[in-house]
Design a protein around this nucleic acid. Structure first.
Lengths: 341, 341
DNA sequence: CTGTAATATCGAAACGGTTCGATATAAAAG
DNA sequence: CTTTTATATCGAACCGTTTCGATATTACAG
């Protein structure tokens, strides 16, 4: 059985030195066009692939990017964050990086087993998706590892976020344009920046439409944002009040679906009695009855943007902090009973 | 800023040679107890962590395990397979391995970008979860990379599977014990070994109970096993027949929930008019109304078993092929309207 | 005692790349 | 025509481990 070809085999076959081959491999320094082509041909012919560990040892880079998700997010918001992960993975392939996906608790605890790549020095950068305790962020920053956040922000850290303001505005315009004035908000964890922004815009839009917000129709107390939380929130709003809203803006689709479930059980018709809109455009929203009006979020793209940014930061350690906001679109479906303008 | 300590630093501080430290690190060869303890102490004191790439280069092992999912499984059956992944990740940490998660198309296509670890030689073994084209399996076997399958089987390949036979039997006993004789089966992709086994046992159990299977109540045509497929399957069975079943055994929870959705829409009551049971015990089954009776599958454990097996195979290349079957339990909830015996 | 086996430690050679400084040639500038 | 600068290639050191064979010591059987 033949052993794997090494860079030496390539160099020998090309009648050139190791260093020249290495330069071609890394697109560095000066190599004449014909030489480069010759080397490339031989690489293909021998089916040569540089060995990551040898590379890592010599270059002091691992070729890995760590991807951290909290336990909660991993289990609760699977459809949302796994999509983001998928985006990072695909993009990472293009740049010849590997993604090391791992989950952690919300905050650092000595007792937990930490992602090993943190002290193994086995990642060149870390991407964190979703809300996470600042202890983690501080820990990583202090270790001097490049960091990019997705759907979360922190001072002086590059991030990829969603244009929540526009998204919430689109939903509210849709509701108001459809004649609704009694609009409630189902929030969940208001301390999550994304939820916070959606909520802020909800109130802004109400005021802009000349409508006074009604605290009774807002639910921003829950700690989480799952379907069950949505169910419970709708229950609170509809069981405690005489005067109930005719439209509900849920901070994400999971909660929107939860609301719908509660209302249907209670015998109310969606959208006839109550219109519902969500946020995120997860698959499940398509399969409920009626299908859920929502805001499309470019999850894969967020992942790939994060990787691109990360690759830049790895190459240029002094790279500036950037805050990238990704666009959203209104997706009108039957759950609001309103035709698009 | 201090640079990371190396094995040399440890050796120097201990007044010993590199090799001795290395032996301790790898629990190999002979090292006296006091020496070992001394080295261990110094390692802790210096917070020394061996560098994976140096290790990989010298040992010709990468310290990585590849985890492959097909695109379809990744997006369709998230809650099921991400749990398995989680199990592998946690177990891998214990054994000092990293998991490289990646997705691929069902069959190998030259045009697709392949998981890079395959030709980079950057994994010591590969775990595949779910049904996948044999082209992938052949490719990996021919590359001589240790392979473990989860929830799928192939000749001469170690696998971790579910005790589908017992699971299906439990469901059927539950139905029959509750007085049902008109029991339908919602299958989806019958070519998936797990679905096939559940279906086979469904028929067996019927016969054992002296009931003649009714082809009209079986749906095993669909290509997939999503909620939508369940919905469509129920529709076929209930719209085409006069004589309809009083109980439905869905090959997984997603389809079971889909069935429930259809029946509810049609105005039938679950479990009063039709009892429904699923398989897998996914989260969502808890949150539908009524909650879904199902079979619990130990997903995390399947993942960790696969990793343990893989680690053994990596250490002992001549390890035997093993087929591990994991147990299941009946989880009785309201969707069948039957009290547990 | 002597010879062999088990235990303990070490030195040095890999492992397969990257990178820095040196050297050689060609092109551009003074 | 010399001097500088850009281009092209190379040799050798180095990255941080593992591992093999050598050596030294101790234990034990004959």
């Amino acid at each position: 059985m033949k052993r794997k070809p090494t860079i030496r085999d390539v160099a020998k076959k090309a009648g050139l030195s190791l260093s020249t081959v290495s330069l071609v491999l890394n697109k560095k320094g000066y190599v004449s066009e014909p030489t480069k082509q010759k080397i490339l041909d031989i690489i293909k012919e021998l089916d040569y692939h540089p060995q990551p560990s040898a590379r890592g040892l010599a270059s002091k880079l691992s070729g890995n990017i760590g991807f951290i998700l909290t336990n909660e997010h991993f289990s609760q918001s699977e459809p949302f964050y796994t999509r983001i992960f998928l985006g990072t993975e695909l993009e990472a392939r293009k740049h010849n990086y590997y993604i090391l996906l791992t989950t952690v608790g919300k905050t650092i605890k000595q007792t937990d087993s930490m992602p090993r790549f943190l002290f193994d020095n086995n990642v060149d950068g870390i991407i964190i998706a979703g809300k996470i305790g600042t202890s983690w962020i501080e820990y990583i920053v202090q270790k001097n590892i490049p960091l990019v956040l997705i759907d979360f922000v922190a001072p002086r850290i590059s991030s990829i976020t969603i244009d929540n303001k526009t998204g919430a505005e689109l939903i509210m315009q849709h509701f108001v344009g459809g004649g609704h004035t009694k609009i409630g908000f189902i929030g969940g964890d208001i301390k999550h920046p994304s939820v916070e922004e959606r909520y802020a815009q909800y109130r802004d839009s109400l005021l802009n439409a000349g409508i006074l917000p009604n605290k009774q129709w807002e639910n921003i107390g829950q700690a989480n944002t799952t379907m069950v939380d949505g169910y419970e929130a709708a229950k609170k709003i509809f069981s405690r009040n005489e005067n109930t809203p005719t439209a509900l803006f849920a901070a994400n689709d999971a909660m929107g679906i939860g609301c719908m479930r509660y209302l249907t059980e209670k015998g109310l018709k969606v959208p006839k009695d109550v219109a519902i809109a969500g946020f995120d455009n997860i698959e499940a929203g398509l399969h409920v009855d009626p299908p859920l009006t929502t805001i499309n979020v470019h999850r894969e793209e967020m992942g790939s943007l994060a990787v691109r940014r990360m690759v830049e930061m790895i190459k240029d350690k002094s790279a500036i902090v950037t805050k990238t906001v990704t666009p959203v679109e209104l997706v009108v479906r039957a759950s609001c009973g309103i035709k698009p303008d």
